[in-house]
Computed example of a mutant assay.
Amino acid sequence: MRLVDFHCHLDLYPDFEALVAESERLGIFTLAVTTTPKAFARNNMLASSTKYVRAALGLHPQLVAERWREIDLWERLIGETRYIGEVGLDAGPRYYSSLDRQTDVFRHILRSCAREGGKVLSIHSVRAATKVLDLIEEEVPEGRAKFVLHWFTGSTAEARRATDLGCYFSINSQMLSHDRGRSLVASIPIERILTETDGPFTPNGASPSRPRDVKQTLSLVSKAKSIPENHCADLVIENLKALTT
């Protein structure tokens, strides 16, 4: 069974290099997202010799208040990868005070991706799904980039709007641990679903999730969509191909 972990912070594990090697050995397509552009170089170096691991260039919205000046470095690195993440907006209580700055940074990122063309973005949208979708509509002409909403917590109406805009959704086990999340996932067309761990921020028992643990997420998605697990795995692979070609 081929697996996809489309959002994992590999560089936040103590055995970062071993985890890259494990994903490669197991043939798990793993998107190594970064939280700042300063972290990208090492991720990209380790991923560059693999078939299955890809490094994404990020500037996490929760770090924008302190790290927004790194947008200049982000801009200099954009040509080195097709994948952008983790980027987006966070309007939760802890980060709301920086929302204007986050919006400026995310708008800059979207404009740069539209200019470059062909980028695939993994997007954070906590309490900000409508604003994220508004900015995508405003800044990115159709066909200039592709979007994956990571750990989506918006409403079913917002999910429907995102689907109409062509967005994909990367689903993790935590999303499927409660009725609201299961209902939301059930409402998303299967052809727009990818799987993720968001490790190390999700647990697998007493330990942080690793890319290999995405199989458990796949099992939960298959139940939410009433699809046999093997078939669900094949569909996720097909979705990944559609996203990246």
Rank of each mutant, 00 (worst) to 15 (best):
R76M: 03
W74R: 07
P61G: 03
T156I: 13
T35L: 15
R107W: 06
G88R: 05
K51M: 13
V33K: 13
H7W: 06
L63C: 00
S177M: 08
S226W: 12
E158M: 13
D234S: 13
S155Y: 07
R69E: 14
S48D: 06
T195W: 01
R82A: 03
E229V: 13
P141I: 02
R54N: 12
E86D: 00
L46P: 04
E17G: 05
G118T: 01
P189R: 00
E191R: 14
E196L: 10
P203Q: 11
R180A: 15
V87F: 13
D134V: 02
R212L: 04
Q62P: 02
I84V: 14
C232A: 12
V140H: 01
S222T: 04
A157Q: 15
I171N: 04
I188E: 09
R94W: 12
F152A: 04
S97L: 11
D198T: 06
Y13S: 09
E80M: 12
S207H: 02
D11F: 08
Q102S: 00
H150R: 11
L3Y: 11
V33Y: 14
A186L: 03
L10V: 07
I171D: 11
D72F: 09
H108D: 02
L26D: 06
T30E: 02
N44Y: 08
R107T: 08
F201Y: 04
D213F: 02
C167A: 10
I237F: 13
T202P: 14
V33H: 12
S122K: 03
A128S: 14
Y168H: 13
L194I: 03
T153Q: 15
A55V: 01
